[in-house]
Simulated assay, not measured.
Amino acid sequence: MNPRIASAAAGAVLLLLGLTACAASPEAAPTPRPTASAAAPKPSAAPAATPTPQAPAAEPSCEAMISAGTVDALTNAGWTAEPKEFVIGDVTLTEGLLCFWADYAVASDHGQLYGWSQISPTDAADAQASLIAGGWMREDAPEGVYVTEDPQYSMGTDEDGYGMTYLFGDGWVKFADTKQGLILIEWTP
């Protein structure tokens, strides 16, 4: 007999013996069932433990601004973030940050933009007016005011046809290279 076949047969027999040893035997004692007089466990009055939320960083950073999954995906692709000054038209937002994620080891214009900043109502109005005067389009929504570039001039759009988009909320503004990209920005002060 071939030694490989004999070895395989012996292994199969050992496996079969191991599996049958684990099977319940017919003469095994039945599991005792609780009687009516057995005390039922009492529910605990203590509240269930909940995870403690992490406090946001004191200042926005490129890594803290977007979701951890997005940071992981970008860094695993070899991308790093380069912080930029956040400017909308003539309004410089000193309370925020604009981040350009890309692979800086190669010369390319391929990357992703994410931005977040606090913004006063006056600066928000000025920034929106500047964008709209430049051909951008305004869209009111329950979550705030979207201002997006005209898709015919966009270098790239999401599946809904939106290119670079700002979302103005109550005292803050978000920015991404597509409207769908805004959902990745999780920064809250």
Results as ranks from 00 to 15, higher is better:
177 D>M: 03
97 L>M: 10
171 G>Q: 05
123 D>Q: 00
186 E>H: 02
171 G>P: 03
4 R>L: 10
61 S>L: 04
17 L>S: 11
131 L>R: 05
132 I>K: 12
111 G>Y: 01
151 P>D: 03
80 T>D: 15
118 Q>C: 13
133 A>Q: 03
88 I>E: 00
140 D>Y: 08
41 P>A: 04
125 A>F: 05
104 Y>W: 13
7 S>K: 10
57 A>C: 06
33 R>N: 12
158 D>N: 11
55 A>L: 13
148 T>S: 15
116 W>H: 11
159 E>I: 11
180 Q>L: 15
48 A>L: 12
55 A>D: 07
176 A>V: 01
160 D>N: 05
156 G>T: 11
18 G>T: 06
19 L>N: 01
157 T>F: 06
175 F>M: 15
83 P>K: 10
188 T>A: 15
12 A>D: 13
36 A>Q: 13
171 G>K: 00
51 P>A: 05
76 N>G: 13
110 H>W: 09
12 A>K: 10
95 E>C: 03
144 G>N: 08
167 L>E: 01
181 G>M: 01
84 K>H: 05
144 G>F: 04
95 E>N: 05
112 Q>F: 08
134 G>C: 06
167 L>W: 00
153 Y>Q: 08
40 A>W: 11
162 Y>T: 14
81 A>E: 01
176 A>E: 01
114 Y>W: 06
8 A>Q: 09
90 D>R: 08
74 L>I: 07
165 T>Y: 03
109 D>I: 02
2 N>R: 12
185 I>L: 12
114 Y>E: 04
133 A>K: 09
69 G>E: 06
184 L>R: 07
147 V>E: 07
161 G>V: 14
61 S>Q: 00
40 A>M: 14
93 L>C: 12
186 E>L: 11
155 M>C: 09
6 A>T: 00
86 F>M: 15
14 L>I: 06
2 N>K: 06
50 T>Q: 12
32 P>R: 15
78 G>F: 07
78 G>P: 03
20 T>P: 14
21 A>I: 06
96 G>M: 06
15 L>D: 02
83 P>A: 12
6 A>L: 12
8 A>I: 08
72 D>Q: 09
71 V>R: 00
125 A>R: 04
78 G>E: 06
96 G>E: 09
39 A>W: 11
48 A>M: 14
185 I>E: 09
26 P>S: 02
103 D>M: 07
31 T>I: 13
54 Q>P: 01
32 P>E: 02
151 P>F: 07
159 E>R: 07
35 T>L: 11
96 G>Y: 07
37 S>V: 14
103 D>V: 10
103 D>R: 04
122 T>E: 08
98 L>E: 00
105 A>S: 13
98 L>R: 04
29 A>F: 10
40 A>S: 15
148 T>H: 04
28 A>S: 08
149 E>V: 14
36 A>D: 12
103 D>E: 13
161 G>K: 00
20 T>K: 15
126 D>Q: 08
52 T>C: 07
122 T>Q: 08
155 M>F: 05
22 C>F: 14
31 T>L: 15
83 P>Q: 13
5 I>C: 05
87 V>F: 00
41 P>Q: 09
154 S>T: 12
43 P>L: 04
45 A>W: 12
171 G>H: 01
10 A>C: 13
176 A>N: 00
65 M>N: 05
96 G>K: 07
111 G>M: 08
132 I>V: 10
85 E>T: 15
102 A>F: 11
131 L>N: 02
